[in-house]
Design a protein around this nucleic acid. Structure first.
Lengths: 205, 205, 205, 205
DNA sequence: GATGAATGAGGGTTCATTCAT
DNA sequence: GATGAATGAACCCTCATTCAT
């Protein structure tokens, strides 16, 4: 009783897996269409072309990633905790999702925000919002210093992305993670008001 | 005195890097040719087509790998030491060469020798020779039991390749290395004559 | 109600004529496509490439040839007559079809069945069936000796093909035909039961 | 002690044979060059390119043809005899020279003079001269009627070419020859002065 | 929604041809 | 003379995309 033969969610899932396997260039619309026993042009009734199919698939994957992190972060109220949970959950998610990892490795620029164009601006903005909110919550609660939220958010997001890239796209191995943990510690410590400086819950021991 | 605009060594290096970056399919002959400001068909004066360019580039990379390992192994005389140096040097080399790593990740079958066709037969044979020689040296020196060299060589090479694949192509992380080290220990211990069984120089402590 | 700009039958006819005129190599897909005022890649909606277009065109021509012969043979019941009709009709058809003749001259291996690969296996098998049926009919009717049908069919088909090649592909002229007629006589006479040996309807006198 | 590695006569012979075998398009300069173990560009020291190589090879073949006919014709003085010898010798030569025949079959336009461009103008002019001289000799000797030499030459040459084409390029078989013989008879009879009309030496009986 | 037909762009490859050496 | 290097044109073929049905 479906209106069409193709379910949009399924389409994006199948497409993402195919892109992950073959990479964007080598993936053929026929590859995707044939998985649904459907003609290639028919995909254009659901999607605006190959690029669009790719963008939407990746978008959805990025959203799931963001949502997963957000729901974990939501369980915590302490701003410092939220920070640590956020960065660690993000890392753990990528580590656990082979398809997303393959996508990121094939197309590292997905996470790049500096090189002029920001594809996936919405998702990235969502992630930024999450950071910004955590930041401002920390400031309002009085534990963080009253820094400029926008610029610090930018800084944090860039650092985060940089490490993701190093870790998963350029494959710089696990020592990159140690440096990352350390950097996060430094930043968090820098945000805390002096009297909080001793304890950083969730830090490495 | 230059033969032409293109130096063969440079060509293979550039090609390898390009293949490593984009993968075989997405790499265009124009990609490679344009790095030398040269027309695409001109590459056919140096190389027999895209496939050939790929094969030769990879071949050279594999040879460098093999030679690097061989030269390190040559510094040792004790068969047991040679074994440990050999397997560790091989792993370390791949770890240090991002281009080779990318190539292996994009085309894991390079190392496959079982699936009927053995592309890069010569290099693989060279590696096998290295193993076989180390084995027979150990036997002649009286430290190894007089095993059948061919079958043990086969076994060792397969084990070695299997771990390389797990480690770098399938990205199974570093715990695979621990297992590998252990396996090597077991094999070496099994090769040693009883009185040698206690000490395995180069082992993990 | 037209399916498209190109009618499959027309396509194969045009292609066959073009191949006959220029030969396989010199014939361009553009040559064929332009006859339909159509882009070259569009041919791939009808056909699987140049080789496939060639194969199908020739296949059809061979089928027409076979069918023409078969329908003539069907008018006769006497096995001996059938034999003579069959071989003569086959020869006459080629003589009358300049396009088929040109194709055969450009690509003599079409009829070759011995050299390992039998392209056009189906048609050749059809022709063999025709021979085999005629043979077994003759045997059942009691006029032919009870020979092994398969091996005699093989022998007859080979002889037939050999003469076709000599006549049309190597252009050995009409004296080849005389030899052919004689050979057929000999074979037929050898197949007949002794009491039939005197009369061979359709023979040369 | 040859100046170069290649003898011009040999080159043209080899080239002609190659063109005859593969046809103009499929023949590669490398095909020809490799027969002399010589680089492809080197051929340009002897010849002005592929087209030129073809033209010269064919030219030479046509000249040999013409000369062969001319030398046979020269043995006769009777104009009528000369005519018959000329046309028969021309036919016989083509029949005996498989390479020339293959060339003519692959490129029937060689003999075409009507379609605007006359490649091989010189040879064709030579052949025409031969006809014209025979004609004028016949006229001067008083056996032929005083026709306009140019137009009759044109007519004869065209007829001759037409039959050659029918016979060898379009493969119209041997009945074309009968028609040809008859036509020649008719023409010769028409040229003779009335009292000569009875006897036509060399005619068909 | 779905499909067959059609196209332009682009990729690998061959080839005739030119040029500097 | 001879050659290696270089190029543009052309070919087969794939693919994303459009359009009429």
């Amino acid at each position: 009783m479906k209106a069409g033969r193709i379910d949009m969610d399924e389409l994006l899932d199948v497409a993402l897996a195919t892109f992950a396997t073959y990479g964007y260039e080598k993936t053929t619309l026929r590859d995707v269409a044939s998985r649904f026993s459907v003609s290639t042009p028919n995909l254009y009734n659901y999607v605006d072309g190959k690029r669009d199919l790719y963008m939407r698939s990746v978008q959805r994957a990025l959203e799931r990633w963001r949502d997963s992190v957000a729901s974990l972060v939501a369980k915590h109220t302490d701003p410092v905790e939220r920070f640590h949970v956020m960065v660690r959950a993000a890392m753990a998610y990528v580590e656990s999702d082979a398809v997303l990892r393959a996508i990121l490795m094939n197309d590292p620029e997905i996470l790049s925000v500096s090189s002029g164009v920001d594809r996936f601006g919405e998702v990235n903005r969502g992630a930024r919002d999450m950071i910004a909110k955590t930041l401002s919550a920390g400031i309002e609660s009085g534990r963080f210093l009253p820094v400029d939220i926008d610029s610090v958010t930018d800084f944090l997001f860039s650092t985060y992305m940089m490490f993701l890239l190093k870790r998963f796209s350029f494959g710089e191995g696990e020592q990159a993670m140690a440096v990352f943990d350390e950097c996060i510690e430094i930043i968090v410590r820098g945000l805390l008001k002096p009297q909080d400086n001793r304890e950083t819950p969730g830090g490495i021991e």
